[in-house]
Design a binder for these strands. Structure first.
Lengths: 224, 224
DNA sequence: ACGCCCCCGGTTGTATACGATCTGATAGCG
DNA sequence: CGCTATCAGATCGTATACAACCGGGGGCGT
């Protein structure tokens, strides 16, 4: 049985990606509670979490508003990810405090490659999950605890707002190749190499999103 | 009238800095509620916020544990701050999207300098508050929205765990000088200069903390 | 003696009820 | 006619009550 707070969280997150809560719109606690089949208490908890991830804005005594993201904002987010993910792999090489399980990471790469060969939307989604796990494992291996709490939050915004966007086969293939290269650089003990590949990797991911991240002009991109 | 959630938040935060909740210890919702004079609901909200800031760890159905920080963890935090604050001022210069109020920032510097001249513990605390506001204003001026939600969280850990530590007059004086220099670099439109000063500024702050951040050996530094 | 199972106290998780606060509209006044 | 004060509705914030869950301790069987 899933926790009510988690149910509410997913309901809201899903509602945002599906377009039920467009950017700039209000999210009413009662409404979400009814939709998710829980009471307002866990809904409030979910909204605070979404706020800490930057997905919604909380106006005291007013409620929650879905934050809108311009193409420019996405650039900013990927700027930060490029810096931080690059720093993370550098740390993995230079200060190997956190234990790193290279065989497990390589196995994840293999699985992703197989899924890509098989094709299919469901498999593509599974690749996305594995990619998140892959990066998460690297964050853990960096040994920087604060990094581990920051980077997931940075991933959240692009995930929520681009979930239904498909990356091409070529984009995914390159992404997986870069994963392998990152592991190779780590194995070689080359921090500069690892950081450089990771930065390119993040940049490429942003470019893959950029192709059509323009939104209809009538939808406000921000709330304020 | 302050919100009950804010009262609970401060009560916990204060309890941690005062040593009532040492690292590794449990924070019971009932206990905090009684201490803060509120019900458990806002206490829970405060604990979730502290969790999102990395101050406490939440064990499902078990409760909250105070996270312990080693000297090494503090190094990591300031590593991140150095990167991110440096990036922020670079952005202030290169992509001046967010409006920057240089006169107001200079006024803050003047006030801090006056407070330093007057001396006294209370004034030192006030300088600390102003310094946080100063950096916060720069984050805002960077125009990177995610940055504004990340950096306050990074400040929180050092603040909570080093609040009662006094910085020397010389350390504070240098810190204020660097603030001025940062503004001067921004005014000159020199991003490299601004970033370099900011990185040094953060590094110096970490060094000021390092002088005695070793803790008694019998107190567990981490919870796990 | 050792290990397993069940029960119980304590704590968290959720639901519901009530009080506080804000927005928008409306009526009264200058 | 425009502005301000007031009120009603809606929504959030908090308190309280109850249900669910976890961990430890005692008893039982092997």
């Amino acid at each position: 049985m899933m926790r009510a707070a988690a149910v509410a969280y997913q309901a809201i997150q899903c509602g945002i990606t599906e377009g039920d809560y467009p950017p700039g719109s209000w999210i009413r606690e009662d409404e979400v509670a009814a939709r998710a089949g829980v009471s307002r208490t866990p809904v409030r908890e979910a909204l605070r979490k979404l706020h800490s991830e930057g997905i919604v804005e909380l106006l005291p005594n007013r409620g929650a508003v879905v934050v809108g993201w311009t193409s420019h904002d996405l650039d900013d987010i990927f700027d930060l990810r490029m810096m931080l993910e690059g720093y993370a792999v550098r740390r993995v090489v230079e200060a190997p405090r956190g234990d790193i399980d290279l065989p497990a990471l390589n196995a994840m790469c293999t699985e992703m490659e197989q899924l890509l060969d098989q094709g299919g939307t469901a498999n593509h989604d599974r690749i996305g999950e594995l990619a998140v796990a892959f990066h998460s494992a690297l964050h853990r291996a960096s040994g920087n605890r604060q990094l581990m709490s920051i980077l997931p939050g940075l991933n959240q915004v692009p995930l929520v707002h681009t979930a239904n966007r498909q990356r091409t086969h070529e984009q995914l293939a390159r992404s997986l190749t870069q994963h392998r290269e990152i592991l190779e650089a780590i194995t070689a003990g080359d921090a500069d190499w690892a950081e450089a590949v990771m930065r390119a990797h993040v940049r490429a991911a942003r470019a893959a999103l950029r192709t059509e991240d323009s939104r209809p002009a009538d939808v406000p991109a921000r709330e304020a």
